[in-house]
Computed example of a mutant assay.
Amino acid sequence: MSAASLVSLRGVAKRYATGTLAVRGIDLDIAPGDFVALLGPSGCGKSTLLRMVAGLAEPTGGRIAWPGGQPSARDIGFVFQEPTLMPWATAQANVALPLELAGMPRAEAASRAASMLARVGLQGFEKAYPRALSGGMKMRVSLARALVTKPRLLLMDEPFAALDEITRFRLNNDLLELWTAERFTVVFVTHSVFESVYLAQRIVVMAPRPGRIHAELAVDAPAPRGEEFRTSADYAAHCREVSQALAAAMAPAAA
């Protein structure tokens, strides 16, 4: 375990009450400011691992340690696969909710929420209800809600998977811009090789049955990244390398 890590996982395993072993033997260090992608096929335990780091599920083996001190609820932001917004509340009210639950005065929470909505490109939509927003806009609200408490760690569980390609590219770019400016730590779950290479500094490739780490690869392209990187030979080479590691992880011999 590294004292410089934000969070360290050692021998982490999760077996459900049904007897299913979801993940086993996970050793992973996440440093402050890291952008780490967890890449693997459906059912390999990526989301289970993310939920254990968030404290939403308990490991049944191993341990998760926080060398710098146990985080508070405000230190961790979580963006789920679905936006999970309150349909009866405006975008601003949805984003302000974590601050109000933490005891912040309503006016201050509303101001902070409006500012964060502007940061994710939704200035002017503060009073809009979820039913009036597109899928991409709802996900921006969800991202704003996760970031409004200024968390040390942002956990993202395939947040853009259901969006069209153009919207997904835009949100990838906006996320990288926010991360470059604020340098919070990100753990991003995806099953897309292309998305993982575009976003992450480190890609953790997971093998299924049960979930475990097969390989870890670095993407050394500098930030900020943009279309120049996405269309470069360097990007294509990284995608080939990651694709080969994923194929090896899914091969019968790796099971």
Rank of each mutant, 00 (worst) to 15 (best):
S134A: 09
A218E: 15
R51T: 05
N94R: 10
W179T: 00
G211K: 04
M206C: 07
Y129K: 15
L178H: 06
A17T: 11
P87C: 04
Q92P: 03
P222G: 07
F194K: 12
F184D: 00
K14Y: 07
A245N: 04
M86Y: 15
A57K: 09
E227D: 14
K127M: 12
V187Y: 10
E228R: 15
T149G: 04
A109D: 02
V242W: 06
I203N: 06
S192L: 06
L175V: 06
S47E: 02
L154N: 00
A110S: 13
L153A: 02
A218M: 14
R183Q: 12
L39V: 00
M86N: 15
I64R: 12
R15V: 11
A91P: 02
A161N: 07
A162W: 09
N94G: 01
D234M: 11
E216A: 12
N172Y: 12
A13N: 07
A233T: 14
E227H: 13
R140I: 00
K14G: 01
Y129N: 04
E165T: 13
V187E: 02
A3K: 13
G136K: 01
L101V: 13
I166L: 15
L155D: 03
C44I: 05
V205R: 05
F160D: 01
V12K: 03
M104E: 14
Q201H: 13
A114E: 11
R168T: 00
L153C: 00
R131S: 14
L49N: 01
A245D: 06
L163T: 04
L246K: 03
R170G: 14
V12E: 02
R240E: 15
A200R: 01
E100M: 15
R74G: 02
V120P: 05
T90N: 03
R51S: 07
A254M: 10
T48W: 11
I203F: 09
Q123V: 11
R51H: 12
S196W: 07
A4I: 09
R240A: 10
M86K: 10
A223E: 15
P59R: 11
N172A: 12
D157M: 08
F160C: 02
V187H: 09
L147R: 00
A245I: 06
H214V: 00
G124V: 08
I30N: 03
T149W: 09
